[in-house]
Protein backbone atom coordinates (compact mmCIF):
# COMPACT_ATOMS: atom_id res chain seq x y z
CA UNK A 1 0.00 0.00 0.00
CA UNK A 2 2.69 2.43 1.00
CA UNK A 3 4.54 1.61 -2.23
CA UNK A 4 1.85 2.89 -4.55
CA UNK A 5 2.33 6.49 -3.51
CA UNK A 6 5.69 6.50 -5.22
CA UNK A 7 6.01 7.21 -8.91
CA UNK A 8 9.57 6.00 -9.14
CA UNK A 9 11.26 3.51 -6.88
CA UNK A 10 14.92 2.68 -7.14
CA UNK A 11 15.89 -0.44 -5.20
CA UNK A 12 19.53 -1.23 -4.45
CA UNK A 13 20.59 -0.22 -7.92
CA UNK A 14 24.09 -1.40 -8.70
CA UNK A 15 25.96 -1.29 -11.98
CA UNK A 16 29.40 -2.65 -12.69
CA UNK A 17 31.25 -2.59 -15.95
CA UNK A 18 33.49 -5.56 -15.48
CA UNK A 19 35.51 -4.76 -12.40
CA UNK A 20 34.64 -1.07 -12.53
CA UNK A 21 31.99 -0.27 -9.98
CA UNK A 22 29.97 2.68 -11.16
CA UNK A 23 26.79 2.65 -9.12
CA UNK A 24 26.81 1.07 -5.72
CA UNK A 25 23.54 0.14 -4.05
CA UNK A 26 21.48 3.22 -4.78
CA UNK A 27 17.98 3.34 -3.33
CA UNK A 28 15.55 6.22 -3.38
CA UNK A 29 11.93 6.98 -4.18
CA UNK A 30 10.24 9.82 -5.98
CA UNK A 31 6.67 10.71 -5.18
CA UNK A 32 4.22 11.50 -7.92
CA UNK A 33 4.49 15.13 -8.89
CA UNK A 34 7.75 15.65 -7.04
CA UNK A 35 10.64 17.73 -8.30
CA UNK A 36 13.91 16.04 -7.42
CA UNK A 37 17.38 17.28 -8.27
CA UNK A 38 20.45 15.11 -8.39
CA UNK A 39 23.76 16.82 -7.82
CA UNK A 40 27.16 15.28 -7.79
CA UNK A 41 30.70 15.74 -8.97
CA UNK A 42 31.35 15.27 -12.68
CA UNK A 43 32.06 11.69 -13.63
CA UNK A 44 29.94 10.44 -10.75
CA UNK A 45 28.00 8.06 -12.95
CA UNK A 46 24.92 10.09 -13.65
CA UNK A 47 25.02 9.19 -17.33
CA UNK A 48 25.11 5.54 -16.34
CA UNK A 49 22.17 6.18 -14.08
CA UNK A 50 20.21 7.75 -16.94
CA UNK A 51 21.08 4.93 -19.28
CA UNK A 52 19.77 2.48 -16.70
CA UNK A 53 16.49 4.37 -16.62
CA UNK A 54 16.19 4.22 -20.38
CA UNK A 55 17.24 0.59 -20.35
CA UNK A 56 20.19 1.16 -22.62
CA UNK A 57 22.04 -0.70 -19.86
CA UNK A 58 20.54 -3.29 -17.56
CA UNK A 59 21.50 -3.07 -13.89
CA UNK A 60 23.94 -5.54 -12.36
CA UNK A 61 21.79 -5.74 -9.27
CA UNK A 62 18.62 -4.12 -8.04
CA UNK A 63 15.85 -2.60 -10.08
CA UNK A 64 14.09 0.52 -11.04
CA UNK A 65 10.32 0.66 -10.81
CA UNK A 66 7.84 3.08 -12.27
CA UNK A 67 4.35 2.80 -10.79
CA UNK A 68 5.45 -0.42 -9.14
CA UNK A 69 6.54 -2.03 -12.40
CA UNK A 70 10.02 -2.56 -13.74
CA UNK A 71 10.86 0.46 -15.88
CA UNK A 72 10.31 -0.11 -19.58
CA UNK A 73 10.65 2.78 -22.00
CA UNK A 74 8.21 1.06 -24.34
CA UNK A 75 5.52 0.92 -21.71
CA UNK A 76 6.28 3.88 -19.51
CA UNK A 77 6.22 7.35 -20.73
CA UNK A 78 9.62 8.86 -20.14
CA UNK A 79 10.63 12.21 -21.58
CA UNK A 80 14.08 13.72 -21.85
CA UNK A 81 15.62 17.12 -22.08
CA UNK A 82 19.32 17.10 -22.77
CA UNK A 83 22.04 19.64 -22.53
CA UNK A 84 22.16 20.48 -26.21
CA UNK A 85 19.00 22.02 -27.59
CA UNK A 86 17.95 19.83 -30.46
CA UNK A 87 14.81 20.84 -32.23
CA UNK A 88 14.35 19.31 -35.65
CA UNK A 89 15.38 22.08 -38.05
CA UNK A 90 13.00 21.03 -40.82
CA UNK A 91 9.97 21.33 -38.60
CA UNK A 92 8.28 24.49 -37.41
CA UNK A 93 7.86 25.14 -33.70
CA UNK A 94 4.40 23.66 -33.72
CA UNK A 95 5.47 20.63 -35.75
CA UNK A 96 8.34 20.07 -33.33
CA UNK A 97 5.92 20.08 -30.41
CA UNK A 98 3.65 17.64 -32.20
CA UNK A 99 6.49 15.34 -33.20
CA UNK A 100 6.63 12.95 -30.26
CA UNK A 101 2.87 12.78 -29.98
CA UNK A 102 2.49 11.97 -33.65
CA UNK A 103 5.10 9.22 -33.41
CA UNK A 104 2.96 7.70 -30.66
CA UNK A 105 -0.01 7.97 -33.03
CA UNK A 106 -2.26 9.73 -30.53
CA UNK A 107 -5.61 10.92 -31.87
CA UNK A 108 -5.40 14.27 -33.62
CA UNK A 109 -7.76 16.07 -31.23
CA UNK A 110 -5.63 14.99 -28.29
CA UNK A 111 -2.48 16.23 -30.01
CA UNK A 112 -4.13 19.54 -30.87
CA UNK A 113 -5.28 20.01 -27.31
CA UNK A 114 -1.94 19.24 -25.71
CA UNK A 115 0.09 21.27 -28.18
CA UNK A 116 -2.20 24.30 -27.76
CA UNK A 117 -1.79 24.08 -24.00
CA UNK A 118 1.98 23.94 -24.24
CA UNK A 119 2.19 26.74 -26.79
CA UNK A 120 0.14 28.93 -24.48
CA UNK A 121 2.05 27.94 -21.34
CA UNK A 122 5.40 28.61 -22.96
CA UNK A 123 4.34 31.77 -24.71
CA UNK A 124 5.27 30.40 -28.11
CA UNK A 125 2.18 31.73 -29.93
CA UNK A 126 4.08 34.15 -32.13
CA UNK A 127 6.73 31.56 -33.03
CA UNK A 128 4.27 28.83 -33.93
CA UNK A 129 5.22 28.75 -37.62
CA UNK A 130 8.87 29.74 -37.29
CA UNK A 131 11.70 27.36 -37.96
CA UNK A 132 14.22 26.72 -35.17
CA UNK A 133 17.06 28.47 -36.98
CA UNK A 134 15.06 31.68 -36.88
CA UNK A 135 14.89 31.57 -33.09
CA UNK A 136 17.26 32.28 -30.24
CA UNK A 137 18.88 29.44 -28.29
CA UNK A 138 16.63 30.02 -25.30
CA UNK A 139 13.50 29.84 -27.43
CA UNK A 140 14.79 26.66 -28.98
CA UNK A 141 15.38 25.19 -25.53
CA UNK A 142 11.82 26.21 -24.64
CA UNK A 143 10.60 24.13 -27.57
CA UNK A 144 12.54 21.13 -26.29
CA UNK A 145 11.17 21.55 -22.79
CA UNK A 146 7.67 22.05 -24.13
CA UNK A 147 8.05 19.01 -26.36
CA UNK A 148 8.99 16.91 -23.33
CA UNK A 149 6.11 18.17 -21.19
CA UNK A 150 3.63 17.68 -24.04
CA UNK A 151 4.23 13.94 -23.76
CA UNK A 152 2.56 14.01 -20.32
CA UNK A 153 5.49 11.92 -19.14
CA UNK A 154 5.34 9.60 -16.15
CA UNK A 155 8.79 10.90 -15.49
CA UNK A 156 10.61 13.81 -17.02
CA UNK A 157 14.38 13.49 -17.02
CA UNK A 158 16.40 16.63 -17.45
CA UNK A 159 20.13 16.18 -17.83
CA UNK A 160 21.89 19.49 -17.24
CA UNK A 161 19.52 21.20 -19.62
CA UNK A 162 20.90 24.64 -18.86
CA UNK A 163 24.56 23.71 -18.70
CA UNK A 164 25.47 25.80 -21.72
CA UNK A 165 23.42 28.87 -20.95
CA UNK A 166 24.36 32.18 -19.43
CA UNK A 167 23.01 33.15 -16.02
CA UNK A 168 20.17 35.32 -17.20
CA UNK A 169 18.85 32.70 -19.56
CA UNK A 170 19.18 30.03 -16.92
CA UNK A 171 17.17 31.96 -14.35
CA UNK A 172 14.51 32.58 -16.92
CA UNK A 173 14.24 28.96 -18.05
CA UNK A 174 14.36 27.68 -14.48
CA UNK A 175 11.27 29.68 -13.69
CA UNK A 176 9.73 28.45 -16.90
CA UNK A 177 10.28 24.80 -16.00
CA UNK A 178 8.89 25.37 -12.50
CA UNK A 179 5.76 26.89 -13.94
CA UNK A 180 5.26 23.97 -16.31
CA UNK A 181 5.91 21.51 -13.53
CA UNK A 182 3.23 23.11 -11.38
CA UNK A 183 0.72 23.40 -14.20
CA UNK A 184 1.12 19.85 -15.48
CA UNK A 185 1.83 18.05 -12.21
CA UNK A 186 4.67 16.14 -13.85
CA UNK A 187 7.28 14.20 -11.91
CA UNK A 188 10.68 15.66 -12.65
CA UNK A 189 14.16 14.30 -12.10
CA UNK A 190 16.61 17.07 -12.81
CA UNK A 191 20.33 16.37 -13.01
CA UNK A 192 22.71 19.26 -12.60
CA UNK A 193 26.11 20.08 -11.21
CA UNK A 194 25.03 23.60 -10.42
CA UNK A 195 24.22 23.59 -6.72
CA UNK A 196 22.42 26.91 -6.73
CA UNK A 197 20.19 25.62 -9.50
CA UNK A 198 19.38 22.49 -7.52
CA UNK A 199 18.47 24.44 -4.38
CA UNK A 200 16.39 26.86 -6.43
CA UNK A 201 14.37 24.18 -8.19
CA UNK A 202 14.08 21.08 -6.09
CA UNK A 203 11.80 19.84 -3.38
CA UNK A 204 14.46 17.30 -2.64
CA UNK A 205 18.12 17.14 -3.54
CA UNK A 206 19.96 13.85 -3.81
CA UNK A 207 23.67 14.33 -3.30
CA UNK A 208 25.79 11.72 -5.02
CA UNK A 209 29.27 10.64 -4.00
CA UNK A 210 32.23 9.88 -6.20
CA UNK A 211 32.56 6.46 -7.87
CA UNK A 212 31.41 3.94 -6.89
CA UNK A 213 28.44 6.19 -6.59
CA UNK A 214 26.09 6.06 -3.67
CA UNK A 215 23.57 8.54 -2.40
CA UNK A 216 25.43 10.52 0.16
CA UNK A 217 22.46 12.42 1.39
CA UNK A 218 18.80 12.90 0.65
CA UNK A 219 18.08 16.50 1.54
CA UNK A 220 14.64 18.09 1.63
CA UNK A 221 14.52 21.71 0.48
CA UNK A 222 11.50 23.21 2.18
CA UNK A 223 12.10 26.83 1.32
CA UNK A 224 9.04 28.82 0.24
CA UNK A 225 8.64 29.67 -3.45
CA UNK A 226 9.50 31.80 -5.27
CA UNK A 227 12.90 31.28 -3.76
CA UNK A 228 15.34 34.07 -3.19
CA UNK A 229 18.88 33.06 -4.05
CA UNK A 230 20.24 35.74 -1.71
CA UNK A 231 18.17 34.76 1.34
CA UNK A 232 20.27 33.47 4.27
CA UNK A 233 18.41 30.13 4.42
CA UNK A 234 19.00 29.62 0.72
CA UNK A 235 22.69 30.34 1.03
CA UNK A 236 22.89 28.05 4.03
CA UNK A 237 21.43 25.12 2.07
CA UNK A 238 23.67 25.85 -0.87
CA UNK A 239 26.74 26.01 1.35
CA UNK A 240 25.74 22.80 3.05
CA UNK A 241 25.45 20.88 -0.20
CA UNK A 242 28.70 22.35 -1.45
CA UNK A 243 30.45 21.12 1.68
CA UNK A 244 28.90 17.68 1.26
CA UNK A 245 30.31 17.43 -2.22
CA UNK A 246 33.71 18.73 -1.18
CA UNK A 247 34.37 16.38 1.73
CA UNK A 248 34.27 12.68 1.32
Amino acid sequence: MSESQYKVEVHNLTKNFGSLKVLNDISFNIKKGEFVCIVGPTGCGKTTFLNLLTRIYMPTKGDLLIDGESADPKKHNLAFVFQEPSALPWKTVEQNLRFGLELKKLPKEEIDKRVETIIKLMGLESFRDSYPHQLSVSTEQRIIIGRAFAMNPDLLLMDEPYGQMDIKLRFYLEDEVLRLWKETGATVLFITHNIEEAVYLAERVLILSNKPTTIKEDLAIDLPRPRDVTAPEFIEKRQYITDQIKWW
Binding site: A79, S86, L88, W90, K91, F99, L103, K104
Partner: peptide, 25 residues
Amino acid sequence: KEYMDIGTIFHANGRQMLLEIAIPS
Protein backbone atom coordinates in the same frame (compact mmCIF):
# COMPACT_ATOMS: atom_id res chain seq x y z
CA LYS B 1 23.54 11.91 -34.25
CA GLU B 2 21.51 14.43 -32.27
CA TYR B 3 18.61 14.11 -34.70
CA MET B 4 18.70 10.34 -34.47
CA ASP B 5 18.75 10.70 -30.68
CA ILE B 6 15.51 12.65 -30.81
CA GLY B 7 13.95 9.72 -32.63
CA THR B 8 15.31 7.33 -30.02
CA ILE B 9 13.96 9.45 -27.17
CA PHE B 10 10.47 9.32 -28.64
CA HIS B 11 10.75 5.62 -29.44
CA ALA B 12 10.49 5.99 -33.18
CA ASN B 13 10.48 2.67 -34.97
CA GLY B 14 12.75 1.98 -37.93
CA ARG B 15 10.29 3.28 -40.49
CA GLN B 16 9.66 6.47 -38.53
CA MET B 17 13.40 6.95 -38.09
CA LEU B 18 13.85 6.86 -41.85
CA LEU B 19 10.80 8.86 -42.89
CA GLU B 20 10.64 11.39 -40.06
CA ILE B 21 14.31 11.91 -39.25
CA ALA B 22 16.79 10.64 -41.82
CA ILE B 23 15.11 11.69 -45.05
CA PRO B 24 14.13 15.23 -43.98
CA SER B 25 17.57 15.81 -42.50
